[in-house]
Design a protein around this nucleic acid. Structure first.
Lengths: 342, 342
DNA sequence: GACTGATTTGTGAACGCTAACAAGAGGCTC
DNA sequence: GAGCCTCTTGTTAGCGTTCACAAATCAGTC
């Protein structure tokens, strides 16, 4: 076989199995066995081969391996709003678990959430022949879009409940809403409003449902709800409207950003938090403890969510029949934005 | 050749060049030429082949292609703190530009910023044989770590100036600091403090330098500087100390999160912003306009930064001798957290 | 020492694609 | 119509792995 040409001390071609085999005095197949930890290799040969691998700095070629095994060792992460705290940390959780398990992580971010954009991204991943896809697109339309394409690899989605085709990993949002509303009820609030997230988001619907159900079970009216778009700006606008009407003494807000906007609007209107109105947020991003006042929130562990996705993915790879849905529990973090009504 | 077995309407094996060739009545090489847009294919054959491709739903196999071309069509993005506004959006900018250019994006997030973690991630990418690496690790140590490994593919780093080995794309942080400080000086402030980011971050050093230089050129003292860790919590602690000493009438804060903490501390201490103290932040994350009070900031366009990285990468692929450093300009956004001193 | 079974190693053929070259078809000039 | 281009198409040989199978080696048993 040809030698590895050397120019200026740098190998001109990366070493391959054959090169290692020659140096160790064995066949390429034996080297392959060592690299793949096959059991039936004698200790002597294994050591010879490992020495040769170290000497040449051999690393196996992913493309060649993929070509024959039909596996790419790659997980596709399909996400939207990836610059936001929740999705970003979920992605990081997936990345961490995936890399620890020896997988590469390929990312595709949706510019806008639509059927076509989702299908396009999935096709992108199929072109790359990923071994599985994690979907962080917490919209109601997502599952339907995914069902359209015969994907052929395991899919795990964050947010919805799983079904036969798609695994689901989610935080128990209804429970989170319940924690928040029960806390307010416990403080003596009776008129508890909700600043909801956009109702085409799975989580926004679940939080609103939880808010409604908890009030109902306490015999309280659930009539004050306004829908925002998750942004601080929309929270601000809604806060101004709420300040004008003054119908609630407590607000359960769908996320921390909107809560920030609400606090700002109430502050401008001279309404004190928590003396006049209590506010609870959702997510617990790192800044929430430094709002004015520090925000009582429902905390969810996004990284854990991501790790669970990967865990479910690995179960699917094993062919084992795992659970269709994994649920992570949120918790309530008390700060000074909530107090009994005056 | 063998037929594509069909079970339950689903192809058991994906179609390959050969299958398309047979259906179109040409050789596999001709199909390859069509797929790769080679010029010398007659219109008639091209149409026949395209019809066959459409009929079979053919997509070319990335692994096989990579094996022979020695290119993976993949860009590695190596990042730290990817859940934060700036890095996350930079990554999204890279992703967008990369996918538009037909590349896959592989992500590796550093758990902690250290030489070993960086080398490990780079090796991860080399195993995947990425065509290029974008590094979003804005620490001083990054460049040195990268220099240790013979990487063999183009590298573009966000933050530092470029050199022969590594391309650099950055926002002009000194200029940003200058904009902020000049604005405060223009309002009549004389005692202007700085809440700095951690000084092992490239940007933190540049912003502090800009603050110092601008004050010096105006003949003002640059003696009040305290270093934080970018978090709202550290901003809060620093804000408390500042509130106790009352030496400055204006503060240039290294990022928006710390500014949030500072605002909180000042508010608790009964110091009014901007009447008693003016505050300027840095980054302009979407929430900054809804702090109490809305924050005057230096805005940087992180997505643009990411796009430029990819642009520089593509230039490097072409073998063209492009610029070693690309610089993006920040801008000042005026809100109500700054006013002339009382 | 031949016979068995297990363990260890080697051989050849894919995997699906592109690169390099060869060959055929068609048009032009003389 | 021979000669020479140019344009289009086909043939063959890898790229670096793994898989399926065959061959060789090694104990242990009668």
């Amino acid at each position: 076989m040809d030698t590895i040409l050397v120019t200026h001390g740098k190998p001109r071609r990366l070493p391959r199995l054959e090169d290692v085999a020659e140096l160790a005095g064995v066949s390429h197949q034996t080297v392959s066995r060592v690299v793949n930890n096959h059991p039936n290799v004698s200790t002597g040969t294994r050591e010879k081969v490992e020495a040769a691998i170290a000497q040449l700095g051999y690393r196996r070629n992913t493309a060649a391996r993929s070509l024959v095994t039909r596996r790419s060792q790659t997980i596709g992460v399909l996400g939207s709003e990836l610059s936001q705290y929740g999705p970003a940390n979920t992605m990081l959780g997936v990345e961490r678990a995936a890399r620890d398990a020896g997988y590469f992580v390929s990312v595709a971010a949706l510019r806008e959430v639509s059927r076509d954009a989702i299908l396009d991204a999935v096709r992108h991943f199929l072109d790359q022949s990923v071994d599985g896809i994690v979907v962080i697109v917490p919209h109601l339309q997502t599952l339907a879009a995914l069902a359209e394409l015969p994907i052929g690899v395991p899919v795990v989605a964050v947010g919805p409940d799983g079904n036969e085709a798609v695994g689901g990993v989610r935080v128990d949002q209804r429970r989170g809403a319940e924690l928040a509303v029960r806390h307010l009820i416990g403080q003596g609030h009776v008129r508890i409003g909700h600043v909801a997230g956009p109702q085409d988001w799975i989580d926004a619907v679940a939080r609103a449902d939880g808010w409604r159900a908890t009030l109902a079970s306490a015999g309280l009216a659930a009539d004050l709800v306004i829908e925002g778009d998750w942004s601080a700006g929309s929270g601000y606008e809604i806060g101004r409207r709420i300040a004008a009407t003054r119908r609630a003494t407590a607000l359960f807000v769908g996320n921390d950003q909107m809560a920030l906007g609400v606090l700002r609007a109430l502050n401008e209107a001279g309404i004190r938090v928590p003396q006049d109105v209590s506010v609870v947020g959702f997510d617990d991003q790192p800044e929430a403890g430094y709002f004015s006042p520090p925000l009582t929130v429902v905390r969810q562990d996004f990284e854990e969510l991501g790790r669970r996705c990967m865990q479910m993915m690995l179960t699917a790879f094993d062919g084992a029949e795992g659970p269709r849905t994994l649920v992570v529990q949120p918790e309530l973090v008390l700060r000074s934005s909530t107090a009994p009504p005056a």
